[in-house]
Design a protein around this nucleic acid. Structure first.
Lengths: 125, 125
DNA sequence: TTAAGTGCAAAATCTTTGCAAATGT
DNA sequence: ACATTTGCAAAGATTTTGCACTTAA
């Protein structure tokens, strides 16, 4: 599947790139000021994940949040293998620099990680 | 709020107690063979969580799964502070015995943990 | 030219809520 | 008695899909 460069894609990419936090579809839609349709935003975000440009984390509110992938020195090489933090005050999700560590359960194959810590961030403290 | 003992509550409790896995509302509804209404099941489950009888984990599919709380020797004393595992083959969620460890980020307050590892369990391997 | 991307509306999921009826204590 | 719980139906919230139209390459 060949990918094309479209205005919408570039706009979503720049919004995501300029954000220090992971963003949900509705937060991105607000930033675009309605320039891009909801379905399109979801499709762009899902394509970013397929292409390894962004990663998705599902928070404990059941919503999907997206963030640009940053290479971290993870020996396990699993995608999305770091902690995320959801602040219940400012309702933002951020990627934590810390890698998730666990002991490998026997005969289990672990392919993905979805870890969120919930609380109050330093800004809201 | 005083709690009453009802048939529905006891049924949900026994289903959950007899399960080795965390269960979603629809899985429980299937087990009850339609004896209890969807909304009632959700209300019972949410009450269990309020009362500390069960805990809820949101998986990366965005669904809520419930399991009876088992005391584990967690020094942090955080609720729900252990890993969960979602098997993409049998679509079940189980509580892992391992506690989630992370280094405390400065000036952050962590109140809850929602950690899911995703892959293939030993039975489906 | 033509495959990929888009907008709109509708559908699909999952969860919660309002309200009147039923039930536990 | 009367506050809690339930069933039903409806609403909410989030995400996906179908389809015709548009656009990048």
């Amino acid at each position: 599947m060949k990918r094309r460069n479209t205005e919408s894609k570039e706009l979503v990419l720049s919004i995501l790139s300029n954000s220090t936090k992971a963003m949900s579809q509705d937060a991105i839609e607000r930033k675009t000021e309605g320039k891009i349709d909801r379905a399109t935003i979801y499709r762009i975000l899902n394509r970013f994940c397929e292409d390894g440009i962004a990663h998705k984390v599902v928070a404990d509110d059941g919503k999907r949040y997206f963030a640009i992938c940053v290479k971290c020195d993870d020996p396990s090489n699993l995608p999305n293998n770091h902690f995320h933090f959801r602040c219940t005050e400012c309702e933002t999700i951020e990627c934590m620099p810390e890698i998730v560590k666990y002991s490998q359960p026997e005969n289990y194959t672990i392919k993905k990680v979805n870890c969120v810590l919930i609380g109050v961030c330093s800004e809201c403290a």
